[in-house]
Nucleic acid binder design. Structure first.
Lengths: 238, 238
DNA sequence: ACAAAAGTGTTGATAATACACCCATGT
DNA sequence: ACATGGGTGTATTATCAACACTTTTGT
């Protein structure tokens, strides 16, 4: 078929055949030193009542998708400026039982005990180990899995893992995070050499307190150093 | 703000405040041994009349976004099963002068002389060197640039460049493609060693014909071998 | 014979891997 | 003193980067 029509030819049909709704769904991920967890909520939409689902919202006419995703984070976590990354769209025609809803999936990395689940949220929200997630509502298992794949890939090439840790962390905490999220084991000495050679950590000159073993040195992530390195063509890669 | 509302609470507002339109925009890329080119069309929407734009369409209610993108390819190239990759959404509130149109950007890799631009298309369509693209309509410069960035990244880690070449190609053609798309120069001997070691090329036992120099051996991309390697954890990386 | 692009190996530098013991703290 | 996790170096191997000449074809 050859045609000279295009998107603009059809713009008047907004109210007609092209009616659909757009949502964002957020895979909010946290890390508690043992496992990677995803924040889920009990679903109240038939036929999924009782199942858990990701956190999502319809997109408002006066906001971008990034803004909508940040709004979702704000609603459920009370925080605004968390790490967010768009993954991809999910647009199967029958993915939502109540109508045509196309969704854009994001994942977010949060420090899991930065906020207490409280009030109303406490009743419906759950942190669930990503390896123990059962059947979710809608196509949310698929969305979750694709977001996790995407995270694994990006974690190896961008210094984003720090978003899951407290501001001050030990090298072993960092290594453990990589091991848990990537599902691999790493050699301690090689890992330390590698991460320090990337020159994005700042030695805080502080030590862990009140631990029942030799206290570890604490480090922070140096955004400026990373930006500087990156602008000079250095690649971050684990 | 704490809330127990979610996407489903608002589902009845489809016809109200959440009205918006969704489109796909395709960055269709071709390669002619000298440069990477993008397929553009003359825009007929004020205030962009006379400018060039990417190829896009509104999404129909009965199709997925991938299907919509394939439809766009079919309309303008006459071919259906070309390489397509979703990049990301563009959702600025005022990105379209006629209303709220959120778009999902795709790029596509095509063999540039697999199809002749003909008939009506001939009048409006242009292959433009990606380095000589002027001001495009809408936010299409931004979309184009992000798709090119995404392509550069993916070209290094997935064997997708072959989609831009004829089925039978020489190693020098392939090297030249990488050099043009990535904007770098590569060492001939190192490139050959590397690409052959990846074990995804099949020596066709054929030679170039009618060239005014020593004819090159022709190779093809072996999808099966690649799939096999990948399933065994091998990484493709240039 | 000449022009034009195809093809081919070696060496030195750098980065990745494998591996085992002593140290500092709290109980 | 013991339990717990923190911290360190070296030798081997694999990978990457730099580099120049000969070969085959058409004109």
């Amino acid at each position: 078929m050859i045609s000279s029509e295009n998107i603009n030819t059809h713009i008047s049909e907004f109210d007609g055949i092209h009616r659909l709704a757009l949502s964002v769904d957020c895979v909010i991920l946290g890390y508690d030193e043992e496992s990677l967890k995803v924040l889920l909520v009990e679903c109240n939409t038939p036929p999924f009542v009782g199942k858990l689902s990701l956190l999502g919202e319809l997109v408002n006419p006066d906001e971008t998708l990034d803004e909508a995703a940040h709004r979702v984070l704000g609603i459920w976590t009370g925080q605004e400026s968390l790490y967010l990354e768009e993954v991809r769209t999910f647009s199967n025609v029958d993915r939502h039982p109540l109508g045509r809803v196309i969704t854009v999936a994001y994942y977010s990395l949060v420090e899991i005990d930065h906020f207490e689940l409280s009030g109303m949220n406490k009743m419906n929200l759950k942190w669930v180990d990503v390896n123990s997630v059962g059947d979710l509502a809608f196509d949310h298992n698929k969305i979750l899995n694709e977001c996790l794949d995407s995270l694994q890939q990006r974690l190896r090439e961008k210094p984003i893992g720090f978003n899951l840790l407290p501001e001050k962390f030990s090298l072993n905490q960092l290594q453990n995070l990589y091991e848990v999220v990537l599902g691999i084991t790493l050699d301690k000495r090689n890992f330390r050499r590698k991460i320090l050679s990337l020159d994005v950590l700042i030695d805080l000159g502080e030590m862990q307190q009140d631990v029942a073993h030799r206290p570890a040195k604490l480090y922070g992530f140096d955004h400026d150093k990373y930006a500087q390195n990156r602008s000079q063509g250095f690649k971050f890669e684990i």
